[in-house]
Design a protein around this nucleic acid. Sequence first.
DNA 1: ATACCGACCTGTCAGC
DNA 2: TGCTGACAGGTCGGTA
Length: 276
Amino acid sequence: MPELPEVETVANGVHARVAGDTIVSTWFSAKPEPFKVAPSALAEALEGRTITRVRRVGKHIVADLAEPDGAVKAEWIIHLGMTGRLLVSQADVPVPPHTHAAVSLASGRELRFVDARRFGRLDLRRLDTDKAENFTGPGLEPLQISAEAFVELFRGRKLAIKAALLNQSLLHGVGNIYADESLHRAGIRPSLPAGKVSKPRLRRLHAELQLVLRQAIALGGSSVSDYVDADGVRGFFQLEHRVYSRTGQPCLACGTPIRRTIIGGRSTHSCPHCQT
DNA sequence: ATACCGACCTGTCAGC
DNA sequence: TGCTGACAGGTCGGTA
């Protein structure tokens, strides 16, 4: 489900609603799959703490957990996987199916983690030690990276540029939709080995990727099937997709039917004419 | 180290 | 109507 723009929308929405609120109690489902840390440890770290900030790092959502004295000593890391949702609801709103965590807040609301497919994950980072740094994710931020560093990421790599964009240890936050959309906007064939894409074209890709991500954030992300923000509201960027999920439909630039191939095991949508 | 592939889950939709 | 298979925004671990 969620890539950088969707995760950013969720993180910002949750931040606006729960920042400053204190966790009173927690509930976790019996199914262990969503947890990278024992539910009991998560409960211990969350209860009594105040959520001071919720932000996005790559495709992760990070909530800062402050002690009563205000010191942030832990981070709650949430990954939405494919179908995960993080919802802020009044406590009397019925709990949706596939809810795996519910955090009761002093304001009377609940922060709920809902995930039908259970690819999402909940984790905890402790910042107790002096050298513990804030969570920075596996790769570099697509919206922060310079064009020069972006070009450097792909040098000498033999895997397809599309697969390289999806590799979270290089850039984190780009997923299948925005990989396809940025490659089409930059006119680059997704199957090209990353190391063979010329420097000028990589600079173009850098610019188009940042542009498409910013436009998507501005529209609240892409709702392809079940993505919703913290209020359960859908995004609108799916209306701006030029190739993703448009197999067989005419390219909006040249009219050639959009082609679907498989790269890196993922559906890939491209225009055979515009992307060389 | 790099790259590829299947596995992990459930829901939905097209086709028969 | 109901069954079956393909497919879905992501990551991880095993293998070459």
